[in-house]
Design a protein around this nucleic acid. Sequence first.
DNA 1: CTGAAAGCGCTTACAG
DNA 2: CTGAAAGCGCTTACAG
Lengths: 367, 367
Amino acid sequence: MAKDIQARPASRSVTLKDVAAAAHVHVSTASRALNPATRNMVAHDVAERVITCAHSLGYRVDALAASLRTGRSMLVGVLVPDITNPLFSLILGGINESLHAHGYYTIVADVGGEQQNQIDLVEALIARRVDGLILATAHRNDPVVCHCLERNVPIVLVNRSESTQRAPAAVSDDMLGMKLSVDHLVDLGHRRIAHLGGPQNISTGYLRRLGFEMAMENHGFDRADLTIETAHAYTRQAGHVAGRALLQRHPDITAIATANDLLALGVYSAVEELGRHCPGNISVVGHNDMPLVDMVQPSLTTVRIGHREMGIEAAKLLMRELRQEPGARHNVVLAPSLVTRSSTAKPAPGESWVLRPDATPATSPAG
Amino acid sequence: MAKDIQARPASRSVTLKDVAAAAHVHVSTASRALNPATRNMVAHDVAERVITCAHSLGYRVDALAASLRTGRSMLVGVLVPDITNPLFSLILGGINESLHAHGYYTIVADVGGEQQNQIDLVEALIARRVDGLILATAHRNDPVVCHCLERNVPIVLVNRSESTQRAPAAVSDDMLGMKLSVDHLVDLGHRRIAHLGGPQNISTGYLRRLGFEMAMENHGFDRADLTIETAHAYTRQAGHVAGRALLQRHPDITAIATANDLLALGVYSAVEELGRHCPGNISVVGHNDMPLVDMVQPSLTTVRIGHREMGIEAAKLLMRELRQEPGARHNVVLAPSLVTRSSTAKPAPGESWVLRPDATPATSPAG
DNA sequence: CTGAAAGCGCTTACAG
DNA sequence: CTGAAAGCGCTTACAG
């Protein structure tokens, strides 16, 4: 019975009014003293008194109430396509690190892939008054980007960009990445090189395919004759299916440059299923250098991307937007690098072949 | 110049006042009509009119202002030790899914491991008025748990529990998991079995070691004679170091039951470094069945834990706390299962040994 | 340099 | 069933 008197569920926390009363000043003065930005409006001794009182009472500003008044929440929403994918957790780690350093916190929304759902999610985040949004979910032409632009919410894209650059983005140089793959394979002596691409409505899938085509063209191959297969998703499963189709239709290819590590691992299964061997019969290159691909069998040659750095850069771009810093709006394009492991080797000259796990890094013959 | 007139940065969004004006009712009536819980206080036709107006104006409740008034934010804070670890992203995925279904959103805070930092993070989350907290960071005796209890903030632990059960937790049955490991190895014929444990100040490290000891005791081994080494962190690096020490000090052991997959992968490196072979010379069992351990060489026999389910259960527990549902406060302990792959085989009888990747699942001889 | 007041957008006892 | 008012905790022009 006695307990019912306590109306508030949480223990009544100390408010600015309490601090003001303890310091014998008006709440407005207390507020000014506590905020470093306005502290100089207050006499030194008064400010110190207020600060001391605040400390001893254990006062903490109510960020919620402050947000309502100022219109800024110090909250940033992040939309990821699949939080379970280590790629996106790495990016998220970078975003978090960078944002925390600026006093911001992140609300992470995991999109199931459904498009309408995404708009609802964004609306829910806006209702929480997020100051801005970082989208790791963008398609090449993205309705959510449209929506945010209309709603006038600052956004930054990460990992994936739009085809029309309507919003700043932090991405990897996807075309360069594929050039590294192709140059490496050509260097090893491969000529019949295929590409296993990702979804073409996502910039990574599209640009990596384009990068493959241009790199091959650079080496004198006709763009019309290239062997390309596209997976419908960035999964081992989709890679297995598309990889098998590729190998069955074109049994003569000696190497596959894939658009993604998971696709590459799917290709491993397909290669095994068809009784072929990597890298003896067929070389495979991945893309991303995701965790543990150095330990699979054979260890995967792949294109390393600084996912964490990408997250950090995306956060910086958003800070620029929020502060409306002067200077041209721009993208950040990170340079990837090739990591040579055991899934690539010289093509088999007829029957015999030599495993070369310690192949020297590729130098671009097209450069 | 004309632009300066617009004081608010974001496009002035439609407020409850606007809806009320459009529907020719008082804001309080509009509020009641829009909230399903209070709608029955309003005449049908009025409610419909308000709802129609709200729709056509594109009204969205300002969750922030509502929170300030009601004291509930529909926001849950989640503390993870390392968002980059797939384990925790899986848990996070489950938490998100379950919480979203109840209208809650999550703020994820990635702790760097520093202890004081954690308290600050929690304070920042409380300042954002989170309704509750889910901690994936707990040590067996955790200062953050203390702090939350003092601050009267509802908390739930996930994956790791405290030794004194001060807060509800959703965890795996860690001791049972180690029993599955040990029984499997004994089944295969191993007798000289060592344990590579994790940090002992974390429940998973502690309980898995205890589980190892009890399982071995069940098989008639003297608890005082067991071979146990402890890694200082759940990393490949720490596993490599501790694993090497173990193998050097006890060259006669034929199997290692580890407390964690990453430790097991570290052991792989140590085994290779010392010129031994897994599973020929030495069998290794992991714990967690994290993504891709089915593709490493040799594929890892490990204890599978439903991390996603664990996250879902943790969210459910928190919902119980927030709603103060009747019924005893309780923990959820999920049963793990053994996944048999190629890193375990019969011990080598002298020199010769047979690789048995398709070893039959262990049946408990101690049961 | 300080105080008094208004207001961010909402919800909810309190009257009628 | 509806309206008028208070108030969640803060910040910031406005006076003095």
